[in-house]
Amino acid sequence: MIDRKDLGSWMDGAPNEEGYVKGSSLGLPADGPGAVAPFWRRPLSLLLDWGLCMLVSALVFSGDPLANLVLFVAVNLLFLSLFGATPGQFVLRVRVLPVSGRSPMILRAAVRTVLMLLLLPAVVWNRDAQPLHDVVAGTAVVTL
């Protein structure tokens, strides 16, 4: 008979291998520059970017919710394509790098941003600490 301990539990977290280094299957180093960024930097950079967009929207568009969204998409597309990092990511010293495929960064930024707006891909992560929107776009967020 199958016992509960054989199946595991969602409270145990994601399955992991002892000694596995996050990002190693992507060719990223274990630590230092170019390593997978710590989790806390990702949502904090997102909050900084969203706050910047809301501030600009409040000053220029009287806080229109659609303007907030359009500004957020524009900031992500422009900054990721040109610099590899949004303003919030610059502040927190992380950047988005392509890790697979050969598509141009503007396409990667568009796919990543659209999927991030759907929210669900942003909360589903793999063992390399990549959310689904980064997996689909072929990118990884790394430290500088």
Rank of each mutant, 00 (worst) to 15 (best):
L71N: 02
C53M: 10
L78C: 04
S62Q: 14
V99R: 03
G84T: 01
R108S: 06
R95E: 12
D64I: 05
L82M: 12
D64F: 04
L97Q: 10
D64W: 06
G88Y: 10
V60W: 12
P87V: 12
M116A: 15
M54R: 15
G101P: 07
V56G: 09
T113N: 00
V94Q: 15
R112Q: 10
R112H: 14
L59D: 05
F72L: 14
P65M: 11
G63Q: 13
G63V: 05
P87Y: 07
S81H: 03
I106G: 00
L69N: 06
A110G: 09
L78Y: 11
I106L: 05
A67F: 11
G88L: 13
M105I: 08
C53P: 14
T86Y: 11
S103K: 09
F83Q: 08
L69H: 02
P87C: 09
M105Y: 00
A58M: 14
L55R: 04
V99I: 13
C53V: 12
R95K: 15
I106E: 05
N68Q: 08
V114R: 01
V70F: 08
A74F: 08
R112E: 04
F90A: 04
R93Y: 08
L66T: 14
R93K: 15
A110L: 15
F79C: 12
L80N: 07
L80C: 00
L92K: 07
A67V: 02
S62M: 10
G84H: 00
L97W: 00
G84V: 06
M54T: 12
L55K: 05
F79S: 05
L97N: 00
I106D: 01
T113H: 02
G88E: 09
V75Y: 00
S62N: 07
L78K: 00
V99S: 06
L92M: 10
P87Q: 09
G101S: 10
G63K: 13
V99Q: 02
S57I: 12
G88D: 04
D64G: 05
S57Q: 15
N68E: 07
G84Q: 03
F61T: 03
R93G: 12
S62I: 01
L80R: 03
S57E: 14
A67W: 11
F79A: 11
R93Q: 15
L71P: 07
R102C: 03
R108I: 02
V60Q: 08
F61M: 13
G63A: 10
V91H: 08
F79E: 05
R102V: 01
T113Q: 04
S103M: 12
L59Y: 09
A110S: 09
A109T: 04
R95D: 07
F61Q: 01
I106S: 04
M54V: 11
N76M: 09
L77Q: 04
M116C: 14
R112G: 06
F83G: 08
L52Y: 07
T86D: 05
V114W: 03
T86N: 11
L82P: 08
L55Y: 11
L80K: 01
G101L: 11
R93E: 15
V60S: 10
L80Y: 02
P104K: 07
V96K: 04
A110V: 03
L66N: 14
S100R: 14
L66Q: 14
G84R: 00
I106W: 13
L97M: 13
V94G: 02
F79T: 09
V73F: 02
M116G: 15
L78E: 01
G101E: 11
